[in-house]
Amino acid sequence: MSAVESAEKIPAVSKKRSLKQRLNAKGYKWAPYLFVSPFFVLFAVFGLFPLLFSIYLSLHYGDATGGIDRMEFVGLANYIYLFRDDAWFHQSLINTGWLALASGIPQHVIAIPLAFFLHTSFKKTRNTVIGAYFVPFITSSVAISLVFTSLFSRDFGVINMILTQIGNVEIFGFQPLGWLFPTENVDWARPQYIKPMIAFVVFWRFVGWNTVLYLSAMQTIPKDLYEAATVDGAKPWQQFFYITLPQLKPMMFFAVTLTIIGNLQMFEEPFIITGGTGGIEQAGKTAAMHLYLTAFTEGDFGTASAVSWLLFFIIAILTWLNNKILGEKD
């Protein structure tokens, strides 16, 4: 131990170290903050500041493009106007709800059995089939909505052609499918048809995504559960109802949450399909479209910001309700 003492006595030889060397020696302390800083800088400028600014805007009236000092403080007037008087906002909310359900429910009703069937009965061709269902999810919604607009057009659209041909099938002079399928070309731009059309396009875009989510959840269900059920004599459809569905519950909750959040923000498909107008009688106008049109066509940034916050709260509440109903109870 004498060596310890001697070492203490000798004044430590401290080489002159530059600031750079000293900073470098403590690099592991400050480097992580430096590495995460781009996110925070960007978020502050393009995430947080716009949010706060949008609260400010929603309490003001006037044309913000001329400078915010030209705007006038109006308190909650924008919100009150939206609640009481803005019939088109109400209409757009109803449209959004309708579209969300009409495109959302079929997504899950079809995705779950489809995923089950892919999981149990496809081996070699599985990836190809999944690819076919998934590819709409990654393609440009604008490009594909335009294509759909042509497919759905009244006089020459492929879809009308197929539907009316089925509807006009004659057996002994009767049209047995006529009650279900149209016998004449449908004008999809009419208010009662535009919503189903939009809903179909949205459904088409997202059904593959949900299938993939459910498939990934099914792959984590232990095989021995099925083996045990097979030994017990359960048929495939019984296995689906008694094993797969209960085990899928967490994923259902997750996927439905994503659908709710996504569908309530629906913008691109209705925007393109209705040519940016909302369609005849605003039948295809969603809340997000209303928000856009109020701001950028009418120049009313205050009301539009209020729309965005109301829509945000609606999404938050519905997500919360979904959590209450479907979420894990613990």
């Binding site: 400028v45 393009f46 716009p50 949008s54 805007l57 959040i261 923000q265 913008f267 997000a288 928000l291």
Partner: peptide
């Protein structure tokens, strides 16, 4: 915090971002 920012829907920033860019 970073994960939490994923919950902010994009439309919320649409208007103010346009103004910020201007």
């Amino acid at each position: 915090f970073i994960m939490g920012t994923m919950l902010i829907p994009p439309f919320l920033g649409m208007i103010p971002t346009a103004l910020v860019m201007k």
